[in-house]
């Protein structure tokens, strides 16, 4: 994989944020990702859905190398992803990620959670990092909780802090890994509202979610995955109203049917 990736010196189409070509991944013998081809333009908002175990989380986790792929090329913001640690860290600085279980740092306050990476990774002075953190915390409407610890917040509040924490690094693209699956129903909306705002401001987003309402409102493209493959890929309107593959139809009938 390393060799193949370093050979890719071809100029990338301007505005291409994420590019995956022929990506394959195995967990031992289990083939989790099969020949993934995906191009994400700058400002594009993509929703990835599919049954559990279909590889959708693994796919976005490959983009910032939280998972390693064994075959194929991944290029993020023009930088080919290789085994080189420095390059991986460079890509991670420009890729924000929001996790299903928030993964806030419980030993730090909300404000410190948002400052730690700008201060230690981007070497920003504390004052500047704190001012910026407060701006983003205001944007996700949680500034008044800045001095609290994550454990004192509700799930929805924690997830909004996690979004602010990512935004503080000024990412070029945001990855959302089932951001609302661990939330109580009454908290899903407050997180989705923040994500919709973010989408409307033009953030490039790849979002693994089962919130089909979100997909219909903001997605430019919806991708359906099953058994490690991209089965169907379309704009939301035709995707929901006229799904091509049988498996997509079945999946949609199951999650929209009730």
């Amino acid at each position: 994989m390393t060799q193949a990736a370093t050979n890719t010196s071809d100029p990338h189409a301007p505005g291409l944020m994420v590019e995956m070509r022929g990506v394959n991944k195995w967990y031992g013998d289990f083939h989790v990702l099969r020949d993934i081809h995906l191009e994400v333009k700058r400002g594009e908002r993509i929703v990835i859905c599919g049954p559990s175990g279909s590889g959708k989380s693994t796919l976005i986790r490959c983009i910032n190398h939280l998972e390693e792929h064994q075959q194929g090329d991944i290029v993020v913001g023009g930088v080919p992803l290789t085994q080189d640690v420095k390059r991986i860290e460079q890509i991670r600085r420009s890729v924000g990620m929001v996790f299903q279980h928030f993964n806030l740092f419980p030993h730090l306050t909300v404000l410190e959670n948002c400052c730690i990476a700008p201060m230690w990774v981007q070497k920003k002075p504390r004052r500047e990092a704190e001012d910026q953190a407060m701006r983003y915390l205001e944007r996700v409407r949680i500034a008044e909780q800045a001095k609290k610890y994550p454990g004192q917040l509700s799930g929805g509040q924690q997830q909004r802090v996690a979004i602010a924490r990512s935004l503080c690094m000024h990412p070029d693209v945001m990855l959302f890994d089932e951001p609302t699956s661990a939330l109580d129903p009454e908290m899903i909306k407050e997180v989705l509202d923040v994500m919709v705002e973010l989408a409307e401001e033009g953030m490039t987003m790849l979002c693994v979610t089962h919130e089909m309402g979100f997909a219909k409102t903001v997605a430019d493209r919806v991708i359906f995955m099953d058994q490690g493959q991209i089965i169907e890929e379309n704009a939301p309107e035709p995707f929901f109203n006229n799904p091509q593959s049988e498996r997509t139809q079945l999946f949609l009938s199951q999650i929209l049917g009730h």
């Binding site: 910032n64 991670r92 890729v95 990620m97 740092f105 990512s166």
Partner: peptide
């Protein structure tokens, strides 16, 4: 993972 995703060494 969260720390890694923020670009920390």
């Amino acid at each position: 993972e969260a720390a890694a995703a923020l670009g920390m060494t």
